[in-house]
Design a protein around this nucleic acid. Structure first.
Lengths: 329, 329
DNA sequence: CTGTTAGCGCTTTCAA
DNA sequence: TTGAAAGCGCTAACAG
């Protein structure tokens, strides 16, 4: 294995100089920089990230902390896109990543979790799917022992940023589009799981919208479940003239119910995931790019680890008209 | 952070002795062993895995190499279960894991991939979703530079094991059960994606079965796609008296087609995944525990890394009667 | 701007 | 059976 030592010898400089070039330190002359880079190329040198992590308490490694919700299986797609996006970005940024799941920390104390993360030389964490019920993890974030980026939950302090899309605005936009296109007055809104930040923000969006447009709204808890949404729609779909769902999965459920009842109501979803269902109908949805959100999170984490301050980062989203028929196969 | 040094001091022994105790070396007296362990407990010591990885070229870290097939989205669920199972087990075994995706190595040469893995101090790899088309990754396995465990693909050499269920036998069993329960004579078999090891093995199972029972079989390529399976069933379902599918997802597609045509045919699947579809019918399936398979793989990899020889490991599977209606929500 | 040097926390000879 | 000491590959003062 070719090491920094070999590069130094090959370039005729000191090891530390190579390190400085590698890490883009300021005080290096253009000439030596070039010489070193040439040697790096020629020797096909790739720095050993483990050694780097051990040596610098600074840079450290980052952990992806993922909450797999057993309830909404299809979200597996989202989780994977998140993980993939983060890991790809990390590779680009030369950060070392390990993936962890909430389930590994069940019934563990803050102290145990902290110890474990430190034993892994982790200094930065990205958290996916945090809910208000995850008390210990909240403590973890607030303890400020690690730099954190939280996805889709509004937690910010000097060592913590959050990234996500503006759920309130996105829900507002997509619902408004659907409602105005179809001239609706009475909305059935099927929300996500209770106690999710995301659920609350989206509901706010709907409240704002219905107030602004002077609409009536019936709100039901769909728990992010296709079947729940289906049952709710079966029960209340007829009494409303549009069904707005806080997730695509639930929108599919609603759509199936409507088909079953053989009545038409416009339906709109959220997420923009590629579903396995094909109902043969169109619907509006918020197209989120999960990999991109995750990628932004990784970049934000790097900024934090380089002494940045916590802040809110919002990535783009698009409204898209999707025909499920077209997406499959 | 409490280090091995602190433990040594606290226990009144040398650092190296602590290390020996930690790694279960033979030549340590019971007495010192106890003393050290007591200190470890009292100080809540957790070894720094990064330092360990750097120091010992032996143990190293393991990479999970995952092939996310864009085509069959629902497999996301399977991938996640795999990843989770592996990471859980690794935590237990005190192995350091990083997760990587095939896509990161697209258009990369064997040498580049090898360099990257080595720069990450990786010595063991578990590969998920390898197909015959992944030439470079095959070379990687054959280069024997790393200890490998391949899931569901029959590749074995002195440094490589494979683990999975016996696909041929499982397909044989589940189809036989379904066919005998329903007294069928003419089988429609919808296969998975071409060139998958898994697809071939399952097909072999079907060939064996139809030969043994003297059945007629029509084989169609369903590409692991729900919609394809649906279309195939729409076309040929009527001419056959049972539909056997090489995956649950395709079985759902077949079921939907049969419902649409309003005819009854027994359907059987494979996988045992928790699907979001609810067709309200029963079907046989092979229940695989992906997390468990992955867990077994991690254990096998550890054995390999401790100078074991490559071999085939097959984990258990169960046939289960699943009612999709019951599974949802 | 460059090089020397002392670690990071752990493993692993090698002597004692 | 134990301990001293030399690294693993890299970073980060510090001195020049």
């Amino acid at each position: 294995m070719v090491s920094i030592k070999d590069v130094a010898r090959h370039a005729g400089v000191a090891i530390s100089t190579v390190s400085k070039v590698l890490n883009h330190y300021p005080n290096v002359s253009e000439e030596t920089k070039e010489r070193v880079n040439k040697s790096v190329e020629e020797l096909n040198f790739l720095p050993n990230s483990v050694a780097a992590a051990l040596s610098s308490k600074q840079a450290g490694r980052v952990a992806l902390l993922v909450n797999l919700s057993k309830k909404t299986q299809v979200v597996g797609e989202i989780d994977l896109q998140y993980i993939q996006g983060a890991i790809h970005k990390a590779m680009e940024l030369n950060l070392d990543v390990i993936t962890l799941f909430f389930s590994m920390f069940q019934n563990r104390t803050l102290e145990e979790i902290t110890r474990y993360l430190k034993s892994q030389s982790i200094t930065g964490i990205i958290i996916y799917g945090l809910t208000k019920e995850d008390v210990v993890l909240h403590e973890l974030v607030e303890s400020k022992q690690f730099k954190c980026v939280v996805i889709d939950a509004p937690i910010v302090n000097e060592d913590t940023s959050c990234v996500g899309i503006d759920n309130q605005r996105a829900q507002y936009d997509v619902a408004r589009k659907t409602i105005e296109e179809n001239n609706c007055r009475q909305v059935l809104y099927i929300t996500g799981k209770k106690n999710g930040y995301v659920t609350d923000a989206r509901l706010l969006g709907m409240e704002q919208l219905t107030k602004e447009l002077g609409l009536k709204m019936q709100v039901c808890d769909g728990k992010f479940s296709e079947l729940c949404a289906r049952n709710i729609t079966l029960k209340y779909g007829k009494d409303n003239d549009v069904v707005v769902c806080a997730s695509d999965l639930m929108a599919i459920g609603a759509m199936k119910a409507l088909i079953e009842m053989d009545i038409f109501r416009p339906v709109c979803g959220f997420d923009g995931i590629i579903l396995m269902g094909y109902v043969g109908k169109q619907m509006n949805t918020v197209r989120q790019n999960f990999a991109e959100i995750s990628s932004a999170a990784m970049e934000e984490l790097q900024r934090l680890m380089n002494e940045g301050e916590g802040r809110i980062v919002e990535t783009a989203y698009n409204l898209a008209r999707m025909k499920y028929m077209d997406i499959i196969c």
